[in-house]
Nucleic acid binder design. Structure first.
Lengths: 343, 343
DNA sequence: TTATTAATTGACAGCGCTGTCATTTTTTTA
DNA sequence: TAAAAAAATGACAGCGCTGTCAATTAATAA
């Protein structure tokens, strides 16, 4: 029923070792032989048995995705991308949810890596932002690829896939500026997350580039949640004598933006006529609010696939130098932003 | 470094086959021997090698979770529960996202099962609600456990874990009735989903139990989305001469409820004073709205773990008859419901 | 007690593949 | 052209475990 390497060998008229060489893309196989084998592989629809490979070889064909992120949409997207790379490359994916704040997290992961003979790991924030943790893992005999917020890798511990939130935030802020907004509020996400910091930097940079004076009172600390968006927007929009009331709000993600939208409704502020609001992430959230959110699209699926491919090529020692690929989320203009009406 | 079955055998002074018997919980091992081996296993912190097991044995130690559900929170929860069962039982989990509406879905899954030597599958809605699909899989040599909405299994194709949405919906509707509400709107989810149908039945049953006349005009068709909640609530709450304006709304899930909440705000209807709204699912959503939603808690994590355990025991042929376990989501009263003010 | 049966245990092959190393074939050099 | 070097291929063991079946031991019957 299912073809084995033996069947292929017979069909191609070579030894199983030669078949093994072909499917592992090793050198020192004549072109002619390689084609012969490849044909047999195709005819029999042969796929190597992962268990046997893992057992026999020194190498491992398993990678793991370790996550701790309250945002389920993010994880599902990532997972899908990684899975897609694994399928293409004949790798197996282990999923490991965990709690980054727990005491024994490092030991837990180290054990897992040893036990399951994991060849590589994919780390997303906040795990990818924990240097100690990453260092411990890299010192083990396991490849690591991190997905991080920023434009350059913070160190050379491992290859990284960078998501340039800063440039994206600048672009999206610029979009508001282009619409005539000058008093732009900033609703921050969790301050410990790099993404918040980067998005803040982009916001500042855009203001500076347009010679708009930065007003600290328009920056509200918070967290990546709907609630935070509600309270932050309320604070921003309540009448204050000293500060101008903002005509636009930059929210660090779509959830916050949804909260801000909600608060605006409570305060009878019409969106986008009286107030423009932007989100970040292009999560399903942003299409479910009314009006739909202008946001920055982060192709998580693609980012994850890219990261997994990078990891696998590292494992295969296809010695491409430590590549850093970079993504810049793209502006998506929807219905929550409009020309500034204030004169 | 990592202990093998050989190490354990030596340490215990028995043959590897005996160790194998102990770890597989086979009969015909003397109690004394069993303890001796168990001690060695513990001392060496031995864990059987999955690849070797999969390769050597006729059995497989892999199960798969096949999903297609737009609700990421649901999937993450499920996945976590399944993963937990797998860890306990020494099984491996394959994750397979897919599109239930695609043409070749059945073939795709069948192939996967064959290729990866999957011993069992866990199916959640909407896949678990596709009889043809399930039948094809059951006819293969693979165990299936479905998670379904309802109180009894629709057939005896496979064991099921039932989530009794009907009783839960009745309870939650009763909660509204207890608060004095009589005109209770119903915002449906996708009509093709069993969960919508069951929740609707529970709603009807509660009305009947309290001798409240059913009013078809208060039932709005829709889908499981925020938008649907917004438009549905608008429709319900717009002034209609013929129908009483509802004082409470039953929403088929939290997203719909969040939408209804939003619409109410737009219409200057205060929650919960003028209108009570309930959700369903207890998703993170329900804690992020303001006011927080009264809802029905569905312990997805636990349900999934239960399903996985059931599946694994099936695979192990621990011939407990086809068990159907049932969960009834529990009412969680938060801030979106209050005494009816209408006299 | 001894013969018979049942319960335990172990020896060994083999799952499908890769690593090592010997063998064969091809290419290069003298 | 023969000898040496390099490239290509194959034979075989073994990864860690389970299945089969034979060997041993304990329990029961005669």
């Amino acid at each position: 029923m299912k073809a084995t390497i033996n069947d292929v060998a017979k069909q191609a008229g070579v030894s199983i070792k030669t078949v093994s060489r072909v499917i592992n893309n090793e050198a020192s196989v004549r072109q002619l032989t390689r084609e012969k084998v490849q044909r047999a592989v195709d005819e029999l629809n042969y796929q190597p048995n992962l268990s046997a490979r893992n057992l026999a070889g020194a190498k491992s064909y398993s990678i793991a995705y370790i996550y701790d992120n309250p945002n389920a949409y993010y994880i599902i997207d990532m997972q899908k991308g990684i899975l897609s790379a694994c399928k293409q490359q004949g790798f197996e994916l282990l999923i490991h949810p965990c709690d980054s704040k727990s005491q024994g997290i490092t030991e837990e992961v180290v054990n897992m890596v040893k036990q399951a003979r994991i060849a590589g790991l994919i780390l997303t924030p906040p795990l990818s932002e924990m240097p100690e943790f990453v260092k411990t893992l890299v010192d083990l005999d396991v490849k690591v690829v991190r997905i991080l917020s920023g434009d350059v890798a913070p160190d050379d511990l491992s290859p990284c896939v960078m998501v340039n939130d800063r440039d994206a935030a600048q672009t999206i802020t610029q979009h508001l500026i282009d619409l005539g907004h000058k008093d732009i509020g900033f609703l921050a996400g969790d301050a410990v997350h790099m993404s918040t910091i980067e998005r803040y930097k982009g916001y500042r940079r855009a203001l500076k580039a347009s010679n708009i004076e930065f007003n600290k009172a328009l920056v509200i600390e918070g967290s990546y949640s709907f609630d935070s968006g509600v309270s932050g927007a309320k604070e921003l929009m309540s009448v204050q004598t000293a500060n101008p009331r903002p005509t636009a709000i930059f929210s660090c993600n779509d959830e916050i933006a949804a909260g801000a939208l909600f608060a605006a409704r409570l305060m009878n502020i019409s969106i986008p006529e009286q107030l423009s609001i932007v989100g970040f992430e292009n999560s399903p959230f942003s299409r479910q609010t009314w009006p739909k959110l202008t946001t920055a699209d982060q192709p998580n699926n693609q980012i994850a696939e890219d990261a997994a491919m990078l990891l696998i090529s590292q494992i295969r020692k296809q010695k491409n130098p430590i590549t850093i690929s970079q993504y810049v989320p793209k502006l998506i203009v929807r219905d929550s932003t409009a020309q500034c009406e204030k004169l």
